[in-house]
Design a binder for these strands. Structure first.
Lengths: 245, 245
DNA sequence: GGAGGATTGTGCTGTATCGCACAGACATCT
DNA sequence: AGATGTCTGTGCGATACAGCACAATCCTCC
């Protein structure tokens, strides 16, 4: 992680952008721009959190780590949200690891500042709570998808969720990394990616997956994607999906 | 659903019991005791909620329903918590169905009363937020468990979560009902229940599963159960597990 | 006590995915 | 250019579970 000298464009984060100018000015001095690289860990499971993060171009993956080393992702947080819900929820820590899935920038805010702002009530609190509910929907739908849908559809869902939070069509990710997120074998990801590539929805070259047919990918995904996106839209006033934005 | 004449023992619900006498007196007049039967639906997915429910002896299952009719449970709420988080989260509805998994009683509270009490801040708000985080942990762990663990362990987890929220050792549930919760085939539940019965952890007769070796069942379960229980303990000051209470 | 329905048990085939092994392709660094 | 490490592709058997079919058991209600 690197602390950036310039303030950056905080309004690339939707939660910050949804504040009124007055509300934003109130918290602006609490924000600090930072930059992350792929694989950086924001928190380990059980860590007491010192900061909350509002991703701008970075994407964060919430990952569970099992005793036998297996991992599975429960949610993706990008410029739509905030990492560190448990600060205002009261727990100060979660049982998941927060890891950078795509390099980029974020605003960070000290734990005590976030708590203080939250405690004031008002628009900021409301936004944070609505985002929490949206994230719960994403996690819930992940649970359902893990149970009921084949890898190919889950990969499509994962690619769309990531694509929505990126400004590019290129996802810098190895199959191995993706397999850790989805909690499946690396070979399973290779197979699924080949199928999607054969359908001309993505290209699939060493270390990079590129979305070439966004509409088509939405046709290949299970209903889980739309349910989550509709709920983000309902709760936060706009979908995160790049198709409709 | 039946509205009960007598007030009942509201303090069987841990959230209500955790309030100070003064705080509880403040909301007491907002509460009304109701009784539910197996299969009663508290909300459908997308329904605007009129009431929140604090289960006392009832157990509620949060269920997702897919387009093809398949279902999967994302969380269990009993006397440890509250059904209707989205009221104070701001969404007023969720994408899941809330259905009675075990008959019994609950306190209900009008939506606007709950929102008003939440908005006051203080101990009640804090408890609700902490419970929300605990439930998020349960949902997340469900997602992971769905991905990584075999049916037998998942059934054990599900039985323990239900057993913790019951005052009896008898769970009135058919294999078919359980299969809807776990999102697997009915036959899969039959097989898994037979294996647990062969290990003398439960008995398994038509329509009723009885826990006969609680300790043994905890030995048969995956780590998911303990992670969730420890987190409830950390966040809410006590585990829900009957073993340690 | 017989009929009918609900619940559980069992067997079969098909399939998705795992676990493992290894080859080929590519990237990087010297 | 060659060495080395990383990433992807492929093939195999094993396994867990799905989907389907149907028998056996039990419960309830006339």
């Amino acid at each position: 992680m690197t602390i950036l000298a310039d303030f950056g464009d905080a309004l690339r984060n939707f939660l910050l952008a949804a504040l009124s100018a007055k509300d934003f000015d109130g918290i602006k001095s609490d924000l600090e721009a930072v930059s992350f690289n792929l694989g950086d860990v924001l928190y380990e499971s059980g860590d007491k959190m010192d900061y909350a993060y509002f991703p701008m171009t970075a994407i964060v993956s919430m990952l569970y780590l099992m005793e036998n080393g297996a991992t599975a992702e429960i949610g993706i947080i990008g410029n739509d949200g905030i990492v560190g819900l448990s600060l205002f929820m009261g727990g100060d820590a979660t049982t998941s690891r927060a890891i950078i899935q795509s390099s980029g920038t974020a605003m960070r805010m000290k734990a005590k500042d976030l708590k203080a702002e939250f405690a004031k009530g008002g628009r900021f609190q409301e936004l944070l709570l609505r985002y929490t509910q949206a994230l719960m929907t994403q996690i819930s739908q992940t649970a359902v998808c893990n149970r009921l849908h084949p890898i190919e559809q889950q990969l499509a869902r994962w690619l769309l969720l990531s694509h929505d939070r990126l400004s590019s069509d290129k996802l810098i990710m190895t199959h191995d990394l993706i397999s850790n997120m989805l909690g499946v074998r690396r070979e399973g990801v290779t197979l699924a990616a080949q199928k999607l590539a054969k359908r001309k929805l993505i290209t699939n070259v060493r270390g990079t997956i590129t979305v070439i047919d966004r509409q088509g990918l939405e046709g290949a995904v299970c209903e889980c994607y739309k349910v989550v996106n509709d709920e983000y839209n309902r709760l936060l006033g706009r979908g995160i999906s790049r198709t409709f934005s």
